[in-house]
Amino acid sequence: MSFLKLSCKKATEMVEQEKIESLSFVDKVKLKLHLSVCKACQNYKKQSLLIDEFFSKTNNDPETEHFHIEENPHLKETIIKKINETQS
């Protein structure tokens, strides 16, 4: 059975690989086996999914993503000046 053994580092890497390209049959079995016995990697998989969800939920949408609003009066002035310059 040792050929089916997988380290946690490799297993968590394969969790990400699987989302991007398909795994070979052997790799699929290896990963499945590993996840079935390894709590820490199951946990990683869940957390990875949660991060995915966060990204797809916010998906570059300023309405849903949390970010800090900062005032930048200098920038405001610069832009208005530039616009007026293009006018004259």
């Binding site: 970010f67 900062e70 405001k76 832009i79 616009i83």
Partner: peptide, 21 residues
């Protein structure tokens, strides 16, 4: 032109904050 200047006044901070984010 005035309308556009107003947009700059209203939206530049939030656009800047987003870009910085």
């Amino acid at each position: 032109n005035n309308q556009f200047t107003e947009w700059v006044n209203i939206y530049s901070d939030i656009l800047y904050s987003w870009a910085y984010h």
